[in-house]
Computed example of a mutant assay.
Amino acid sequence: MQKAMVTISPETAHNLKLTSAEIANIWTNYQNDTMAICTLSSFLQHVDDPDIRSVVELSLKQSRMHIEKLEAFFTKDHLPIPVGFSEKYDLNIEAPRLFTDDFYLFYVENIGKLGAVAYTLALSNSARPDMCQYYTECLSESAQLLNKAMETMLKKGTFIRSPYIPEYKEVEFVKKESYIQGLLGGHRPLNVLDMTNIYFNLIQNQLGRTLLMGFSQVARSQQVRDYLVRGRNIADKHVEIFGSTLSKEYLPSASTWDVLPTASKIAPVSDKIMMFHVSMLNSAGIGHYGQSLGLGPRRDLGAIYVRLMMEIMAYADDGADIMIDNGWMEQPPQAVDRDKLAKG
C-alpha cells in the first residue's frame, strides 16, 4: 500500500523550531559580528586610503546588517539575544591608530576567509528555509567582500601569492609507498596540495603575529599582555616553520608580513575583544591544521601539524582560563542536565 506524501508549506516550515545546529550557528555569528563591528569601527577612525576605507566600510555594513537579521531570528523564536560585544563598553573610538591601512586590508581579507568557511558549514548544517536563505545570502556577501579586498590588494601590490610550480606535461599515478613517507630518510617533493596548506597556514599565522603584537602593547591587564606576547611568539615560530619547509624544497616562501603596528599604548578595543580574537584564531588554527593533516599524505608534514596543533591547544586552554576568570566567556545554549533534574 502506497503511503501518502506529507508536504510542509513555506509558512509551516518557517514556524519550525530551530535545531541545536541552527541555534549554534546564529549564536556564534552574533558573537563574531558584534566583535567585528567594534573592531572595524576602530579601524575606520584612522583609514587614510580611500580604496581601503571602502573595503572596511563594506565589511562593517555587512556585519551591521547581519546583527539586525540575527536579532530578528532570536526574537521570532523567543530566544534571549546574546550579550556579545558592545560599542559602548568594548570600543574606544578616541584611541590613536594602532595598525596601518595595509594591515586593515590584510585583516579584512583573511578574517573574511574564515567567515566564508563558517558560513559554508552553517549552511550545510541548516534545515529551516529561512536559515538556509540567510546563510546563502551571507556566502554571497562574503564572496563580494573577499573579491573586493583581493582586487584592492592586487591594486596596492600587497597581495601575497602562493608559490608557483613549473608547467607539468602529463598525468601520473602514485606507484610507491615512499610517496607518503618522509619521517626517516628522503621524501618526495611537495605537491600542490601540500603547498596550498602550508601557504594558507603561513598567512594566517602572519595575521595572528601582527594582530597580537599590536594588542600586546595596549592591553590593560598585565595577565592579558603576557598571554598575547606568548601567542605572538608562537605565531612567529609557526611562520618560521612553514617558511623553512618551503625553503628546504627550494620553493619561494610567501612574503613575510613586515608592516608593524604603531607605537601606540592606548587600546582601541577592550581586553575582552582582544582575548576573543585570540580564541577565534586558535579555533581556526586548530581546524586548519587538522584539515591539512587529513589532506597531506606526507608523514613528516603530518608530524609537524600534530605537534603545532598540540601547542595551540595548550595555549587555547590557558586563554579560556583567563576569559573565565574575568567573566568574559559567554556560555553557549546547552542541553538540560537530566541527572541534576532527576536528583530534584
Rank of each mutant, 00 (worst) to 15 (best):
S162W: 05
L184C: 08
R232A: 10
Y164V: 08
Q206S: 07
E141Y: 10
M131L: 08
D130A: 09
N191D: 15
E141P: 04
A219H: 00
I241L: 10
G182W: 04
Y135C: 00
P166V: 01
N191Y: 13
Y227E: 08
R209T: 04
L154G: 03
G185D: 02
Y134E: 04
N233Y: 03
I180Y: 09
Q223R: 10
Y134C: 02
Q144A: 11
L121Q: 13
S178T: 14
S244Y: 07
Y199P: 02
Y134S: 02
A143M: 10
L212H: 09
Y168H: 11
F173L: 13
P163D: 07
L123T: 01
T245F: 01
G214F: 07
I180F: 08
G157T: 06
C132I: 11
Y227R: 08
M131N: 06
L123P: 02
N197C: 12
E141C: 08
S126W: 05
G185Y: 01
K176A: 06
H187A: 12
I165E: 13
Q206G: 12
K156L: 12
V218K: 15
A235Q: 11
S244H: 13
Q206E: 11
P163R: 06
Y199W: 15
C132P: 00
L193C: 03
G185R: 01
I241H: 08
T158V: 06
M150L: 14
G214L: 06
L207I: 01
K237Y: 07
A118K: 14
S162Q: 15
N125L: 03
D130M: 09
C138K: 15
L211E: 05
G185L: 01
A122M: 05
Y227Q: 11
V171S: 13
Y179C: 02
L193K: 07
Q133N: 11
Y179W: 15
V171T: 12
K169Q: 10
L146H: 05
N191F: 13
S140L: 05
N147Q: 15
C138E: 11
D226P: 01
G186S: 09
A127T: 05
L145K: 00
E137L: 05
A149V: 02
A149S: 14
Q144S: 13
E177W: 05
S126E: 04
S162T: 11
L212I: 00
A235D: 09
N147R: 14
L211S: 04
M150E: 14
Q181V: 00
F173S: 12
L202W: 09
S124F: 08
P129H: 03
D130R: 10
P189G: 07
Y164W: 08
